[in-house]
Nucleic acid binder design. Structure first.
Length: 480
RNA sequence: GGCGCCAUCGCCAAGUGGUAAGGCAAAGGUCUGCAAAACCUUCAUCCCCCGGUUCGAAUCCGGGUGGCGCCUCCA
């Protein structure tokens, strides 16, 4: 049984889909006006694991993740760049897709855009106006929060408590300061669509209500996003959707915690953010993913180079171990193995418990050590064959567990070769020169000239190259 | 001001009533010509502080202290 923490109830609950084995999930996607940062990476990696695990458990998941490709920020950015808004949003959608692919985040089944759903949005606003939840005022349309008794149920606020924070911009015709725009009348030079209230464009929250209804129905299983969306975005979505249908919008609401820098929220407005592109230029993208999975999705995660470096080191260990195991197990069929079964069981149980990725990662430690033990000391004859079979089984199980987490899916040899090339380039190390020095050292060792062999090793170490003497010769890698 | 979250080994981080997972770092050992890598062992009688509930609490309740978030765009 999968248990999920539901923001709506503030508790972990047994997950029971409306129509098993189908599961509908809607994740609020990015507003595409700039490059994505680590906070975006955190959110979409977290829900990627949610979807992967649900599918691994046999659910048929329909995953919808939108693009907000029309809003004030995009229009502003377009004005700054002197380009049409559509060009700006299209560009950053492409950049986002590149980042997500780099991080191993799977595409959603449906990735709708606001600009493609204006008629649906207009229709929904029309319903809300007709049933008294919304009112038109001077070309705008506002949602009347007083008309919706449940307003505040997701974020745990009462309207009376929110008064202080409400603001009314000049020119707005709100009846209540807490009311929010469903439709914004067009201003000169802005993109606009026709509507019964005059030309204009959708407000920020309405698109998710319209698109989730179109692709997942009136009520669906999971609605997710960052903690900063709880209020007002998701609260307003509930007001819109439930105001129109009278039915619950989503059964379960999931929210991921922030990425912080020096314990402060990483955000555009504070300016204390790193883009995904900046980090993946320095560290392996998979290491970033592993770093993010090292903390439970609901907790804040403090970003640091040290944390990334540790994740990268750990990932190298994973791939080096798998490379050794593959070498041992080449041509061997895996056998049923209690160790492999125990691993998958432990990882499954961890993820069943509100997607506890740190616990799942912890469960990998023992099996990886065991795999190294098998690879280092396989024995001989029948013992070696048994070791190879056990290694094959364990490596297969680790890869299966890794598939749910979205790690260690690449051929280890490829990964390690790419790592070495990347690090060599960064340190300005010439692989041919290293090979020559390693060859010279091997000759010296054959001649028992250990003084010279050690001198060469020191020389290599000064270059940042660490060598390892093994039964099949000497290998090397770049350190630091 | 309103609402809410967090505080666990040097660092990161699981753990919501039954006696502290895992990783990094560190120390010792095995292996090695010596190393590195790998493997093994050690490493919090204690979970911010003070009270309370309980046979029993890091885990529940009350009060402090410290950090953070939302209430305005934000994953």
């Amino acid at each position: 049984m999968i248990r999920i923490f539901n923001t709506l109830t503030g508790q972990k609950e047994d997950f029971s889909p409306l129509a098993p084995p189908s599961v509908g999930i809607y994740v609020c996607g990015p507003t595409v006006y700039d490059m994505s940062h680590i906070g975006h990476a955190r959110a979409y990696v977290a829900f990627d694991v949610v979807v992967r695990h649900l599918r691994h458990r046999g659910f048929r998941v329909r995953y919808v993740r939108n693009y907000t490709d029309l809003d004030d920020k995009i229009i502003q950015r377009a004005a700054e760049l002197g380009r049409p808004p559509a060009e700006v949003s299209e560009r950053f959608i492409r950049e986002y897709q590149i980042d997500m692919a780099t991080l191993g985040v799977a595409r959603a089944d449906v990735e709708p855009k606001v600009t493609g759903h204006v008629p649906e949005i207009v229709a929904l606003i029309g319903e809300l106006v007709a049933n008294g939840h919304a009112y038109a005022a001077a070309g705008d349309v506002y949602y009347s929060v007083r008309s919706f008794p449940g307003y505040g149920k997701l974020s745990g606020r009462r309207l009376a408590d929110m008064k202080a924070g409400a603001r009314v911009e000049p020119g707005e015709q709100k009846r209540d300061p807490m009311d929010f725009a469903l439709w914004k009348g067009a201003k000169p030079g802005e993109p606009a669509w026709p509507s019964p209230w005059g030309p204009g464009r959708p407000g920020w929250h309405i698109e998710c209500s319209a698109m989730s209804a179109k692709y997942l129905g009136t009520t669906f299983d999971i609605h997710a996003g960052g903690k900063d969306l709880v209020f007002p975005h998701h609260e307003n979505e509930i007001a819109q959707s439930e105001g129109a249908t009278g039915q619950p919008l989503a059964k379960v609401w999931m929210h991921n915690g922030f990425v912080t820098l020096d314990s402060e929220k990483m955000s555009k407005s504070l300016g204390n953010f790193f883009t995904i592109r900046e980090i993946t230029a320095k560290f392996s993208p998979e290491a970033l993913r592993l770093f993010l999975l090292g903390t439970h999705y609901r907790s804040p995660i403090n970003f640091s180079d040290q944390g990334l470096a540790e994740a990268e080191k750990r990932l190298d260990y994973f791939y080096e171990t798998l490379a050794k195991a593959d070498a041992l197990a080449a041509g061997t069929a895996p056998v049923a193995s209690p160790e492999a079964a125990a691993l998958l069981s432990a990882v499954g149980a961890a993820l069943d418990d509100d997607f506890n990725t740190p616990e799942a990662l912890a469960a990998l430690a023992g099996p990886f050590a065991r795999l190294n033990e098998l690879s280092e000391k396989p024995g001989k004859g029948p013992t070696r064959a048994a070791s190879a079979a056990a290694a094959a089984a364990l490596a297969a199980a680790l890869r299966e567990a890794g598939a749910v987490l979205g790690i260690v899916q690449r051929p280890p040899v490829d990964y390690l070769a790419q790592r070495r090339a990347h690090l060599a380039a960064r340190r300005g190390v010439d692989p041919a020169k290293v090979d020559a020095l390693v060859g010279a050292r091997t000759e010296a060792r054959k001649g028992k000239d250990f003084a010279r062999a050690d001198a060469i090793r020191d020389e290599l170490l000064a270059l940042g190259v660490e060598i390892m003497d093994g039964p099949r010769g000497t290998t090397w890698k770049i350190v630091g």
